Simulated scan of single mutants.
Amino acid sequence: MSVTRIPIEEMPSKSKVAIYRLPGGGGFLWGVATSRDLSLDLPGQAADALAVIDGYLTDAGLDRTCIVRCEVIVTDHDRKPEFDEVWKAWMPEGHGPVRSFVQSIMPEGDQVEIIVTAALPTDQKA
């Protein structure tokens, strides 16, 4: 099994990205992101976290259309319409993944955390 992990610097026992490559090609990328700037409002943090996701995808040779699943965690579910506006501008039309949106307690300053699963193309080998 070929799994590549990119650890979180502050806690190496956790990964921000994991990539599993299937033996015949293809596979999956899982990534998690929060905003790098906690002074931003929810839409700003959402846009920044999505920019982090873009970096993970680019590093793996992927784009947003490869995302098949997304989990969005926020501190205030009532702000979903604000997040949805950022998401709508970010996600290419017709390529929306399965997405959930839940509220949770998060570390001080964090307003959103985004977890994605993306499919690697079958011609992409280990």
Rank of each mutant, 00 (worst) to 15 (best):
S39G: 01
K125R: 12
T34A: 09
R21F: 12
V3Y: 06
E93V: 07
A46I: 00
G96Q: 04
L50W: 01
P107D: 14
G44D: 06
Q124N: 12
I8W: 01
S15P: 06
V86C: 03
G109N: 07
S104A: 14
Q124L: 14
R69D: 12
C66V: 04
V68M: 07
K16G: 14
S104E: 13
V116S: 06
D78V: 05
W90F: 04
G55V: 04
A60L: 06
S35N: 09
A60Y: 06
L42D: 01
H77C: 08
L22Y: 11
A51R: 13
A126G: 14
G24Y: 03
W90V: 11
V72N: 01
E85R: 15
E108V: 10
D123H: 13
G24S: 08
W87F: 10
V116R: 05
D76S: 08
E93L: 06
V102F: 08
L40D: 01
K88C: 03
I105P: 03
V74A: 09
V112E: 11
K16V: 15
F83D: 00
D123Y: 10
I73F: 07
P97I: 12
E71D: 12
F101W: 11
F83G: 01
K80I: 09
V68L: 02
W87K: 05
G27N: 05
L29G: 00
L29E: 00
V98L: 13
T122C: 10
S15C: 13
S2W: 08
I67V: 14
M91P: 00
T58V: 13
A47Q: 08
T122Q: 10
K14Q: 13
A33S: 14
D110I: 15
T117Y: 10
L57H: 02
Q124C: 10
D123N: 15
D110S: 14
A18H: 02
V17C: 05
S15G: 12
P81L: 07
L38E: 03
L57S: 02
I73Y: 03
P121H: 15
I67E: 03
E82C: 00
R36L: 13
S100W: 09
T75M: 02
S104Q: 10
P81R: 06
L29C: 00
K88H: 05
T65P: 02
D110C: 14
E9T: 12
L62W: 00
H95V: 04
R5G: 10
S15R: 03
T4E: 12
R5M: 14
G94W: 05
A119E: 11
A118M: 09
D123P: 06
D110M: 15
D41M: 02
V72T: 10
I115S: 15
A118T: 08
Y20P: 00
R21W: 04
T58W: 07
A119N: 08
G96V: 01
F83H: 01
M11N: 15
D76I: 01
V86S: 07
L42M: 08
V72H: 03
A46L: 04
K14T: 09
A118L: 11
V17K: 06
S35D: 08
A18F: 01
A46N: 00
T58L: 11
E71C: 04
C70S: 09
D54K: 05
A118S: 07
M1Y: 07
G44K: 02
